[in-house]
Design a protein around this nucleic acid. Sequence first.
DNA 1: TTAACCAACCTGTATTACCAATTAATGAAA
DNA 2: TTTCATTAATTGGTAATACAGGTTGGTTAA
Lengths: 258, 258
Amino acid sequence: MSKTGSSGNKRTYRKVAQKMLAALDSGEFPAGARLPPERELSERYGVSRPTIREAIIALEVMGRVEVQTGSGVYALKVFKTNSDNPRDYSPFEITEARVLVESEAAALAASTLTDEQFTELEAALEEMSQENESGNLTSEVADRKFHAIIAESTQNRPLINIIRHLWDIQENLPDIRMAHQSVCKTDGERRIAEHQAILDALKARDAHTARVAMRNHFARSMDALHATTEQRAVEEIQRQLNARRERFSLNRIQYAAE
Amino acid sequence: MSKTGSSGNKRTYRKVAQKMLAALDSGEFPAGARLPPERELSERYGVSRPTIREAIIALEVMGRVEVQTGSGVYALKVFKTNSDNPRDYSPFEITEARVLVESEAAALAASTLTDEQFTELEAALEEMSQENESGNLTSEVADRKFHAIIAESTQNRPLINIIRHLWDIQENLPDIRMAHQSVCKTDGERRIAEHQAILDALKARDAHTARVAMRNHFARSMDALHATTEQRAVEEIQRQLNARRERFSLNRIQYAAE
DNA sequence: TTAACCAACCTGTATTACCAATTAATGAAA
DNA sequence: TTTCATTAATTGGTAATACAGGTTGGTTAA
């Protein structure tokens, strides 16, 4: 199950917050409206006031409601996107952000890469193709190294840190790891070729081609991500169907036994 | 200042959460470590246990800590956004990074901006031109608002946060503030026109033109930055020369006095 | 000696009851 | 009609208490 989202969580404030979130989404608490007072909510959800307060604070931190002391709790119209909680970034968001940033980094790198860094890039590429042949598909270290060298070459520290940051986040998103693996498994050769294309463009000092090559590379990652996401959705539905079928057959067995 | 970030907030749980956040960032509560128990924290921060619980819930929703019932509260491994020291970024680096990121954001925004956001952009532009006429040149709020709306419209939270982060850093760099002022002073009209050009491109849903307009806008900022930096360098040299001359003349006076 | 078990202790969970501070509405007075 | 004090409603915060799950370390049995 999901770590954070399930309604089967033990802690009460989460359950309450989730119900209130549903009420917020369903329009039961319309945008801009004042929510019922804490005491009333505590009655409605059958929990104590402190727990309601906790749920409200959770909603507040999520940017869904605003608390005005002495006045009431108000449903916010526009969700404040203050959720810089990398855990609930979607894989697609991260990938999109990386396309934008890393493509530009590649374009910049076309004019900043040193000979030494070209050698490092080739080494990283070689490492990748060895990983590919040896079937060690779980590792992204060579991949990351390749991109890191390009980032480093720009000598723009904010940019370098942004790219590193995005990698860090991504490596903690299971969806992306899975997509990465599936990409390597099904078409590892092509992945190498894409990196080679980037390297070639950089060697030619061609900023535009480097940018395009990087974008193409990410476009494939994005496709793979879509594919695995779809596949997982299908599997989930099948799982649910199987569970239902099993329950149904159990019922029949019970009838037969009676 | 900011609605959410200030420590002068009235509600106690926010103050406590902020202090704990500082402790988390400073390494006083290292990643992975267990925080002191609620009872102890309530003593340390001089608030009651429910309030501590509220603060912890806020941190939990922010994704900074994890609560394990019966065991304790644990500091989550957080992605090192703060690992870079923004203080020794050069203004040029920041501006370059912003060109890359914000130009792409503008290109994206061309297809994502809503009618409401167009209205907001126009309002921000109006605000800027009023600031310009009234001679209130120190303020960047309307400027930042303009760029923030574009960022928001992409609905890409990593991207939004990156742009916000770069703004935050920039606003603490005196060199850039100075360049900004000099740009406004010498050519406020043109600055408005540049923003207008961006807005026009966005209205036309023309990603390419929007990107180019944004790049041009930043190019001017970069020029202004170069100019003021040069000017400051010249002034600094003059100051040093003057200081030396003064010292020299003082020496001569001392000689004369002996 | 080692492994399994169990009980005491620690920690978070949740409630009740109470009072304080702030805000918004009310109504009286100018 | 406006202004200002009063009052009601609401959130803010605390204390004390009981409970449930987890951890730990000692005891017991193998």
